[in-house]
Nucleic acid binder design. Structure first.
Lengths: 212, 212
DNA sequence: CGAGATTTTGAAAAATTTCAACATTCGTGG
DNA sequence: CCACGAATGTTGAAATTTTTCAAAATCTCG
């Protein structure tokens, strides 16, 4: 279950200094094919990662294989700080993904750099707790779609880089339930499915209400 | 729903320097009666809080009143960093609770002080996501009891400072389900109920297995 | 184009919630 | 210190939601 290759290719790229962590050492972009591991639970943690293109899932597993994806990271987002000395999670490329490895400059600076990211992650995680703990299937999917739309610039058209299984494992639902909710939202005229991984939001207000 | 008084009493206390945030300015202990608010969502965030005695719940509400408790904080623990400029959550005293307000020293130091706490909180929140997203009622309660036992020194006897409603709102369950699971664990001989808010763990191994 | 993977749909099963009644505990005032 | 009333907790039965199992449909990509 959740088999993965461990293969990635380093791609030297010359590019302007990185914006978010302006004192980090911008490394070349590493390329990870779909399904490959970026880091594993238990591994020694070090750098942060900036998604140049593609998408990443961060997750934990139960002993019997049940999986909870705690976050998706899209192009332009930074991850890898959900760790103290060692990683507590797995991170995998969902699709062909380019990741820039960021080695933070001084240990003194590190904290100042990381804290805002850690706090944002913490707030995000705790908001997700509310979704998983207190919202039903349709509300969860609605909240997810609103979030994905916002992170893609608030456009009507939303791209979903991940499978139904990923969405289910993020929302604490089965793929069948996710699929049924998509169908229900489509039948209600709230969304229009443009393809398996692409949809248009037709009634944003309804979706927003559902999401909370 | 969830009405609360907003009343607390400042209690000057002379005590040795605070261990965890050794450069913070230790303030007097503030006393919060059961059910009173420590801070509210939307309020400007400032200090951290150290629980001297009692217990605190941190939570969010949905528009219709559904509540998700994201964390409990017991004596000896520090909270209040789940915020950027303003608080994103409510914090309330569960019982009569003493809280020491910690004003962090320099802005430069602040990050270094806060980062480990924020990371620990982040890891905790993401572990809780796994519980809410992928574990059933009995597993959730088991995980909760194991956690509470650990935080109380790993003794067999565990005190639960919170109500069944609080436990339900932490685990994403109704009070009835929480109650039924307690009964089930009791009938299985896994725990012994010493009172409504006190129990003894009889089969720690079974509980640990359930919790994951 | 075709085979394997993914997604959708349906029906039955299981888990949890809801609603209702009853039991227990807690706190207050007599 | 006990009694009372309110709040909290437990239990049962029905309703609801979600999952599971199974099959059909669709998509992907070599």
């Amino acid at each position: 279950m959740y088999a993965q290759q461990i293969a990635h290719i380093d791609v030297p790229v010359t590019q302007s200094p990185f914006a978010l962590l302006d004192e980090g050492w911008a490394q070349p972009v590493s390329f990870f094919p779909a399904g490959t591991e970026i880091y594993a639970q238990g591994e020694k943690a070090g750098p942060l990662y900036h998604v140049e293109f593609g998408a990443v899932r961060v997750y934990r597993l139960l002993a019997d294989g049940r999986r909870q994806i705690s976050a998706f990271h899209l192009a332009g987002e930074t991850f890898g700080f959900e760790a103290d000395a060692t990683h507590h999670f797995f991170a995998e490329a969902i699709n062909a993904t380019g990741v820039r490895v960021l080695r933070i400059a001084g240990a003194a600076d590190m904290s100042r750099q990381l804290l805002p990211l850690a706090l944002k992650g913490l707030i995000r995680a705790q908001e997700h707790l509310l979704v998983l703990g207190r919202q039903n299937a349709i509300e969860r999917v609605a909240a997810f779609l609103v979030d994905m739309a916002e992170r893609q610039g608030g456009l009507r058209q939303v791209e979903l880089p991940m499978s139904r299984m990923d969405i289910g494992d993020y929302l604490g639902l089965t793929i069948e339930t996710v699929s049924r909710v998509f169908t229900r939202l489509k039948d209600k005229g709230v969304i229009r499915l443009l393809g398996l991984r692409s949809l248009e939001i037709l009634k944003q207000d309804v979706l927003l209400d559902m999401g909370e």
